[in-house]
Amino acid sequence: MVLSGFVPKPSTPQIGKKSLPAHNKTSTSPVDTPKDIDANAVPLDSLSDTSNAPLLTKPQPLKPIPLANPDPLQPLDQLVTKQSVHMLPYIPFVQEISIGIEGVSLLKNTWNLLKNIKKHEPNRPYEYVGNLNILFRKNIQFSADLGYVKLYPDQLKANKHAYSANGFYGSVGLDYLSRYSITDNIYIGLRYSRAHFTNQTIPTQKDEQAIHKKLTASWFELVLGSETRLLDKLNIYGGCTLRLGWLYNFETFNPSENYIIPGYGSNTNKLAPSLNLYILYKISFIERMIKFT
């Protein structure tokens, strides 16, 4: 095998040694030289180790391959001009859900409870009112109220008997809501309300029997309300509503012609204004605006 860069150089026969001709038949070699071997060929073992062939050089060490940039956006930033991009927030179909309680009735219940502890009154009035609001797209809000009440009104001169009233009332309607700040809003709407309750006379004598009758009443309400955030982290809101009710259908109660309709007021008033205070807990589904820089 001949290495690249090396050329074998025929060596000169050394002095003192006699080379035998290949065709000499009197050679003492036990094996005759084949006829197909070239007589002028030089055996490899006769090459001198002191040849002037160039030596192999040590190869240079390989340079490390530079690693790729882990962030491919950096070279692109040098070619593209940065600009602020604003994306409109995604507005879900249902934006907010609010659950609340009416504050005035809560204060009245607390006051009547404290009085009952002192005077031990057997007939204690109470009222529980809750509401549910669902805000949709286009600032349309569905509102529903539900209340249960038990009343013991004072006897009027126009009535023959004192009475008690207890039952349920509720209202449903739609509002249009407008936000005039991040934490405040105002709305206006129309409600349909209905009450199912029972009036019962309170006997003043032992042999007198109580008269009771199941009654119904219906009315419409025009509502103007406002809300403000009280606690940011808990999403607690406080608000008030100014209502104007119009009574158009009710049943009479002969023992006491002038009586209170739960959720409305006196049946003698065709228009009944009222002011309500409430506390709400809101669950919001609105995503904030996303900004890329």
Rank of each mutant, 00 (worst) to 15 (best):
A210G: 09
T252A: 14
Y248H: 15
L174T: 08
A217T: 13
N199Q: 07
I188Q: 03
E257N: 13
R194M: 12
R191I: 03
N258S: 12
F250V: 14
K206H: 13
G173A: 05
L244M: 13
L234Q: 12
G239N: 13
P255Y: 14
N235L: 13
T216N: 13
L231Y: 09
I260N: 15
F220M: 10
L244W: 13
G189T: 06
S181Q: 03
T183A: 11
E208A: 12
T183G: 05
S181N: 04
V223I: 10
N199H: 05
S171D: 07
Y187E: 03
K214M: 06
E227M: 02
H212Y: 10
G173R: 00
L177N: 02
G238M: 09
L244Y: 14
N235W: 08
Y176H: 04
I186M: 06
N254H: 10
I211M: 11
S178D: 00
W246I: 05
K214V: 03
R191W: 12
C240M: 05
P203C: 14
G225S: 15
Q205L: 06
Y192K: 00
E208T: 07
E221R: 05
R243L: 01
K213M: 09
E251L: 11
Y259F: 15
S193R: 03
I260F: 12
E208M: 11
Q209C: 09
E257R: 11
L242Y: 15
E251V: 09
L244C: 12
Y169L: 00
R179I: 00
Q209A: 10
V223Q: 10
Y259I: 15
L234A: 15
F220K: 11
N235M: 12
S171L: 02
L234F: 13
W219N: 14
R194I: 11
I202D: 01
L224P: 00
S218P: 01
G239Y: 03
Y237P: 12
G170C: 03
C240Y: 00
N185P: 00
D184N: 10
Y259P: 15
E251W: 04
I186G: 05
Y169Q: 00
S171R: 01
V172T: 01
Y192T: 00
T241C: 08
R179A: 02
T183P: 00
W246K: 07
G173V: 02
Y169I: 03
I260P: 08
T228I: 06
W246A: 12
S171E: 10
I260A: 15
L215A: 02
K214T: 04
T201L: 14
Q205Y: 09
Y176R: 09
P203L: 14
D175T: 06
D232Q: 14
S178E: 00
I186W: 01
